[in-house]
Amino acid sequence: MTVSETLLVFLGIPVGFMLLVTLLIFAISGPRSKRYRPDLTFHAAPVWFLAPETAVKVHRPALPSSSNTEHVQGGARDTW
C-alpha cells in the first residue's frame, strides 16, 4: 500500500463520511431556522390566522387604504 493509498483510505474516507453526515443534517433541518431570535432578522413568511370558520392565510392581502378605518374604535401598541 503506497502512501497516497494509505492517506486516501485512512483520511479521505473518514473525512468524506463526516462531510456527508454534515450535508445530510443541513439538508434535513433547512438552511435557516425559522425560530424567532430578537437579535436577528426575521425571515419567515407572513401568516394571518382567522378563527374558526376561515383558515390560515399565508399570502399578504392588498395593502390597506388609510381612509377606510372608521370602524376602528380602539387598541394599543407596544414595542420591544
Partner: peptide, 12 residues
C-alpha cells in the same frame, strides 16, 4: 405600523 394594522383589521 398602526395604519397598516388598522388596514388589516378593515379586511376582516
Amino acid at each position: 405600523t398602526t395604519v397598516a394594522a388598522r388596514g388589516f383589521h378593515s379586511e376582516l
